[in-house]
Design a protein around this nucleic acid. Structure first.
Length: 156
DNA sequence: GCCAACGTTGGC
DNA sequence: GCCAACGTTGGC
């Protein structure tokens, strides 16, 4: 029987586009619009229902972790890639060969205050966390259990 | 608004 | 298959 270990992720979203408050309002959303193969592979192959998600606000003031979410549906085709009207339309994607994948996530909590990136960078144990590395652009990042434990204890 | 870092594209 | 050019991301 395959082991059922809970894994952890960091998902970036620009709050001007879709914030933690939007997720709280909606309860659940599909994580569409990712057009990077490495991030796609994580969603297609590795993210499973029950996995924990750090909800990160990028291009925000300040950028940082705004709250928690949880994966509720594993990877399935991202229909926004098939819609010529959509900003994320990709003509390379077809119903037969959808290329791009998304997962569904649900709201878990909004932190009492955002954890700024600057604070993550100063926190012992997070020196190697992907989001604290310079030039880290990946919008779906794996988080280690140790990093998850540290970050989730930083706010209520 | 700037620009470093990174990913993708396309000519060869 | 190399790599220069280009586009995008995202912190600052």
């Amino acid at each position: 029987m395959p082991s059922k270990t809970r894994r952890y992720w960091l998902l970036k979203s620009e709050p001007d586009c879709y914030s933690i408050d939007d997720l709280q309002r909606d309860g659940t959303t599909f994580w569409s619009g990712v057009r990077n193969y490495q991030a796609r592979n994580f969603m297609r192959d590795e993210m499973k229902p029950g996995d924990g998600v750090l909800y990160y606000h990028s291009s925000a003031e300040p950028p940082g972790v705004a709250g928690l979410a949880e994966v509720v549906r594993e990877g399935y085709p991202d229909h926004t890639a098939l819609d010529p009207e959509d900003d994320h339309y990709d003509p390379k994607s077809t119903p037969e060969n959808p290329i791009w994948m998304m997962v569904d996530v649900k709201f878990v909590k909004k932190f009492s205050g955002i954890i700024p990136l600057s604070e993550l960078k100063e926190t012992a144990g997070l020196e190697k966390m992907m989001v604290t590395q310079r030039g880290s652009r990946l919008s779906v990042q794996p988080v280690t259990p140790e990093e998850w434990k540290i970050v989730t204890k930083m706010r209520k």
